[in-house]
Amino acid sequence: MNPVNYLYLAALLFTIGASGVLLRRNAIVVFMSVELMLNAANLALVAFSRLHGNLDGQIIAFFTMVVAAAEVVVGLAIIVTIFRSRHSASVDDASLMKL
């Protein structure tokens, strides 16, 4: 199969993820969408690795997984904390990021 098709799939996944981040209000779902985007990027990287015939892309994909795992830990912790204090997991309820 043509590896370019994997790139189309990655673009599709990325778009789905991006729409999820922008449109959904539930923090958990937003979070999952972010993961989807990351994995779309991973897929693209691996596809490129295959296309170019070297391992750079795969190595970066591993990095991304590690970062994603770390992000899940921190991100989930933040979401849980916010949920505990506000009894809501909607991202539009919190505007704490401005002074």
Binding site: V21, L22, R25, V30, V91, D92, A94, S95, K98
Partner: peptide, 12 residues
């Protein structure tokens, strides 16, 4: 404005 999603929009 502090809303995560508007930041995301500007990023995208």
């Amino acid at each position: 404005n502090g809303y995560a999603r508007s930041y995301a929009v500007s990023m995208f």
